[in-house]
Amino acid sequence: MSALLLVDAGNTRIKWALTSTEASLGAWTRDGAVMHADAAQLAAEWAGIAAPAAGAGAAMRVIVANVAGAAIRDTIAALLARCLPGAAVEWFASVPQRAGVANGYRNPGQLGCDRFAAAIGAHALAPGKAVIVANCGTATTIDALTADGRFLGGMILPGLGLMASALARNTAQLPQIAQDGKLPAGFADNTDDAILSGILSAQAGAIERAFALHRAAEVLVSGGASAYVAAALALPLRRIDNIVMIGLHAAARAG
């Protein structure tokens, strides 16, 4: 059995999962997440997986999707070299075609590797379906995938937290609100609810527009804010825990 470490370095957190290429899609042996500032904590986690992987008599394989910049890449590379020496490390990148997904970006390499991984994950989870993939994190990405696996492109907008922070920072009298409040029914009768209604409606409206434009069968919603955004949608949908990691797993299983 080939041990496989998947790492998704997003804009805010570094998420990871231990699995194998033979395991069912999304079946993790162990997983975790840390904020960027706490990346050093991964040393203890990853050092702990080296012995069992080696004891199984299989080489460790690592796939990393990083959209957090060069400094985080260097940090992860150093941690891997220290904790998992000899592991085969792949820095996942967007290419014209992989794991049944054809990258329709004008310049395929310009597509964020997290969006490409999410598309691969969506195609593996919903084969033969035209879907919208909404990944709701620091930024919200909304992408269209055809039933036969063609990535058409999509939308990028600020996530819930960024929208709320932008209002609080750039206006004189609007407060900073939490993004995890309950969406009010109808029109809000106080400022906090009005802000929450506005930012959730903006997210949901963009997803609904993409769904209608693509004539999709389903929306796959993922990311840290997915629970709040999904609750505002009146569409056929599935919430997926870290669809980027699912996509990395599917890419590894495809070879």
Rank of each mutant, 00 (worst) to 15 (best):
A164M: 09
L157G: 13
V221R: 00
E208G: 10
I132V: 11
R209Y: 06
L79G: 07
G223F: 01
A164C: 08
A217E: 14
L5S: 05
A43S: 14
I156F: 02
I243C: 02
W16E: 00
C83E: 12
I49M: 13
A43C: 03
P127V: 14
A168I: 06
A126L: 13
G186A: 05
A51L: 13
L183Y: 08
G26M: 02
T75L: 10
N11H: 05
A43G: 09
A124W: 13
A124Y: 15
S222H: 02
A70R: 14
D143G: 07
T75E: 12
A234V: 10
A147P: 11
T171S: 06
R61Q: 11
A185D: 15
L213E: 14
Y228R: 12
V95N: 07
R150G: 07
A33P: 00
N190H: 12
V7A: 01
Q173W: 09
A164S: 09
V219F: 00
H123Y: 11
I14E: 07
P52G: 04
G86M: 00
R238E: 07
A78T: 14
D38M: 03
R30D: 09
A93G: 12
A139I: 14
V89P: 06
A188S: 11
D8R: 00
A225W: 00
K15F: 04
I243H: 06
F151C: 00
T29N: 12
A204N: 05
I132L: 14
A254Y: 08
A118I: 12
A70F: 13
I195D: 00
A77G: 13
A77Q: 13
R253E: 10
A144G: 11
L5E: 01
A51C: 04
A130H: 14
L220Y: 05
R73F: 09
A216S: 07
W16L: 04
K129S: 15
H249M: 07
A40L: 08
G69W: 06
A206I: 07
L213M: 13
I14N: 02
A231W: 02
A225C: 01
I76E: 03
A216G: 00
A78F: 04
I142W: 15
Q97E: 09
A188K: 03
